[in-house]
Nucleic acid binder design. Structure first.
Lengths: 248, 248
DNA sequence: ACCTGAACACCGTTCAAGT
DNA sequence: ACCTGAACACCGTTCAAGT
């Protein structure tokens, strides 16, 4: 953190004040978010940082939702793409995990992303990478197309759940309330809940996330999109366990 | 319907003004939301409706997030539970669809629900109903416990995606931008995206929702929560922020 | 033509002071 | 002990008016 001293003699403006363009605005927004969290990224604060009035921003950005989407697209550039080679499932899980962990650092952004979906270049790259891996795994195109949405939605929603303040444990209360409610369920009125309470609350976040991805992959592989496969829609469980990719 | 005449001698107040209790506050909140949408349900408006100052509400409700959770729990009472008999999968899909459609009418609430999860009586009933159906279908308890979260999260997140204004098509722009981006993807840099663009955008919402539920069910049935792997799973993924169920 | 000051219409939450 | 007026510290967005 630099002290705000004035180097004498230099026509001093704020360091690296970007031009008032869409790109400049987004860049400053990312900076504020990295330093102080998304909730500090407001139109007014942004305008102040850029030495103008909030109204000026609306020349470049339609509204706050669009701004958030643009910020997210920027962050998407940091998602690690695992190198080719090895099991496509592992690579896909790694890619999606990297995406999720990025969002975990900015849960508020994840919350926005559910509503105002990004459509920038980096998002497109992510989509392409996921589709490429699904294709490599022989997932039929219809299932891949619809499954993509679910995979990204799961990652995004899971990150969004951690929002509700970008740092302070106030959401803690809500989670504890749910835990207490589940554990306090009466065996008479809620027998299944009561007997599964511990399992409902079990698991490291990382383990549940991984299970979720693998579960989704299995479901996607198993569930045809077209109604032509009427009967096989209710295919009973075959070999339990991952690793039974079925061909169309 | 009684006209708003003044019955002489009666101390006249707003019709049916509830007492200032938690229940009364939530009831008024639900009324405002039904009539004018969630975005009108603010602490200040609520206080005004109850002839008091906003500060008074904080005696009964911790914050806005908790208020939203309480409203949602109230609406959860309207979720239809399909009668017993018939295929458990169909009944489960019907139940989850009913939950989703309820949230579709209040997407903002769905958005809140992802962060501030409800833990009221009606939510518990929903959890119990889902677990009962999974049990009926012979889903192993571990998978049922973890799968429950995914099923409800999918429903909630899908409804939340429709938020961003409780009625007006301003989000339309975002969706169109995504559609344009996908269709405009270059076959050279994004071959999979380009060739799947139509399929990515295809499908009635109801069809995709139904596919999603069936896909999740298949995945849940197929993916064991590995118990054999005892201690080999401590992936060093640190989840920042509150909400991670760890002991102090 | 392009930009923006100032205003409009609100927010959630806290806390000192009243009863 | 319980409740709340008033204040604190902000918001997003619009539009008439300036350059």
């Amino acid at each position: 953190m630099t002290e705000r001293t004035d180097p004498p003699g230099s026509r001093r403006e704020r360091p690296a004040k970007p031009a008032l363009t869409r790109g400049g605005i987004v860049a400053v927004a990312v900076g504020i978010m990295r330093a102080e969290g998304l909730q500090k990224v407001t139109m007014r604060r942004l305008a102040q940082e850029l030495d103008t009035g909030p109204a000026s921003l609306y020349v470049y950005v339609r509204n706050t939702a669009e701004l958030h989407a643009a910020i997210l697209d920027e962050l998407l550039a940091t998602v690690e793409r695992p190198p080719a080679g090895g099991d496509w499932r592992d690579r896909l899980e790694r890619l999606l995990t990297s995406y999720t962990l990025m969002l975990f650092e900015h849960p508020g952004l994840a919350q926005s992303a559910l509503v105002a979906r990004p459509s920038g270049a980096h998002y497109l790259n992510l989509v392409e990478a996921v589709l490429a891996l699904l294709d490599e795994g022989g997932v039929p195109s219809g299932q891949a197309a619809w499954g993509l949405d679910l995979l990204l939605q799961y990652a995004t929603a899971t990150a969004a759940e951690h929002a509700g303040r970008d740092g302070t444990p106030r959401t803690r209360g809500e989670w504890d309330a749910l835990a207490a409610a589940l554990r306090g369920a009466s065996g008479r009125t809620h027998p299944h809940t009561a007997s599964l309470a511990d399992e409902l609350l079990s698991g490291e976040p990382a383990a549940r996330l991984s299970w979720g991805f693998r579960m989704l992959l299995n479901g996607i592989l198993q569930t045809p999109v077209h109604a032509s496969d009427h009967a096989s829609d209710h295919t009973p469980v075959r070999t339990p366990g991952p690793g039974t990719p079925e061909h169309p």
